[in-house]
Structures are given as C-alpha cells and as structure tokens.
Amino acid sequence: MKYAWYPGCSAEGNSFAYDETSRMIAEALGIEFQEIDDWNCCGATEYFSVNQLPAYALVARNLALINAEETPQVIAPCSACYINLKKTDEKMAKYEQLNTEVNVALAAGNLSYEPGAVKSRHFLDVVCNDVGYEAVKEKMTQSLAGLTLVPYYGCYMGRPEDNFDHPERPQTMDTLLKTLGADVPDYSLKTICCGGHMTQLSAEASLRILRHLLEGANQLNADAMVVGCPMCQLNLDAYQKDVNSAYKTNYQIPIVYFSQVMGLAFGMDPETLMFERGIVSSKAMLEKWLTAEPASKKRRRREKRDKNALPMPKQLES
C-alpha cells in the first residue's frame, strides 16, 4: 500500500538521522510513500495549549493537503506529530461543531477536510503491523545478538486512547528488537514521559525525570536505548551530560532510533545510518556488536533472569 508521509519539523534538523534512516528502511521493506507537499508544523504541544481552534486548523491543513483517494493513510515518524494528526481527525469526527468550524477556517485557504478520510499512523506501527515481523526477519542479513537494547516508547504510542499499542505495557518495539536478535529486557519505565518541552522551562524538573529513565536503563545494562520519537531522543541524548553533572552520575547510553538498528540488521553500512549524529557516542555499542562472538552471545542468553519473574527495578539512591 502507498502512504502519505509527514516528516515533521524535527526531520529538518534535530532528527535528520531518523528521517533519513526511516526512508532507507521503508525502501528496503517496500513501503511506498508520498511526502505531503508543503506540509506545515503540527503545533506540537504548544499550539493546543493556547488556542484550540487555530491548533486544529493548523493540523487539519496537512490532512487536507493529502489526496485521500491515492493515500488514505499518513505516516508520521514523530510521536507528537502522530498524535496531533490523529487527535485532530478523531475530534473533528466526534464533534460536529468543531468539524464545521475547522472547515470554515480551511475554506479561507480553499481547502476542506472530511474527518475519517485519512488515517494517521506511526511509522513503528506500519513497520510492525502492516509490514510485519516475518517480513522484517526476511530482510535481515545479520542478527543483533550480543546487544542489550532497551525499548523506550514514551507517551504517545499508547496514549491517550486507541493508539497502536497499550498505554502502559506496549510490546511492539520489544517484539521488533527481539526479532532483530537483540537481548530485550523488560524496561518498566518504558512509557514514562521524557519530560517533553520541560527542558526549556525547568532544568531541575526535567533532569530529575531524565535521570530516572537513564538509571532504569543503566540497571538493565543497556548498550543503547531505542526510541521512535525525536523529542524522546533529544531529551535523553542531548541532556544526558547535564544529568551526569547534576547527579554525579556517569551514564553513557546512546539513544538510537529503531530505524537505525534495523538498518544494522539489514546489513546497511553503519556509516550511512548516522549514529554519529547522537551526542552520546554509539561507538562502544557498535564495537561490541561487531566483535561479539557467537559463543559469547549464547552465554549471555543463558544468564537471562527467570522469565516468570516480575520486573523489579532497584530503588534509586537519592
């Protein structure tokens, strides 16, 4: 099936690596897409907070620009874009007055949108549920065995409602990373918020949230945390150093996109997968993977804890 593609603003800077590697993965998996011509910002979490109707109209312009007959589904790689596109479509369908008002606004730009015409999808959802794990497996040329990858979902893959995964116990990315052959521990903090834009408002509050997430992943001996959202990536990556100086910790956990590690398993050259765009270096992770002996991989597997035990994060020392 062919999809519309909504890159989102961070694709042009902060998450360039995600955009680029997503396109590479999509091509490898035969996902065809068409970038929305002249798309605009989704408003992130800011626009909705200040003025509701313009916020909906802003998002709706993107939906209206899609030729729904050709591409009845739109992929957003960013979780915040995904949720805004989805929320706008659903609320317009649910609330008649909102629908009318948004369309009056759109008409000022000679556009219109009929709610329900375009379904919003997160890129991870399309990879795992449309393409499927079996097809992913077929594309693999090498396993990620030897790497402990901690999946981190953040807020919007499962919340607020009817998203593609469970609000508290999502599994999509766990299954994907296991399919790729990695060791995937049960990370009990995987849906706790990364703090979003809090970094701009209160360093103290955001570093506390980030430290909690990093400590959890560190206790699981993460070689990397794997994300599917530019904001999660940015917060955990770019502010990791600040967490370290604020809490006298020494976390060195690379924060990578699922599309990047998929590329590794698909045999793409690590150089083209742009790991060096991360602030925290992925070098140790890549070296570990490249030098992992098949035998040591097996030993690692046997060391895994009891499958039936509940995840039990250790208490943080404050």
Binding site: L53, A57, R61, A108, G109, N110
Partner: peptide, 18 residues
C-alpha cells in the same frame, strides 16, 4: 513553507471564529 499566505488565511479565520 511555500504557501504561507494560505496557512495565514486559515489561521486568521480560525482565530476570528474561535
């Protein structure tokens, strides 16, 4: 974006109704 005029017209209208 290319069609800033269109986006502005939409937002202005939305603000007016809202």
């Amino acid at each position: 974006i290319k069609n800033m005029g269109q986006l502005r017209a939409i937002l202005d209208k939305a603000k007016e109704i809202g």
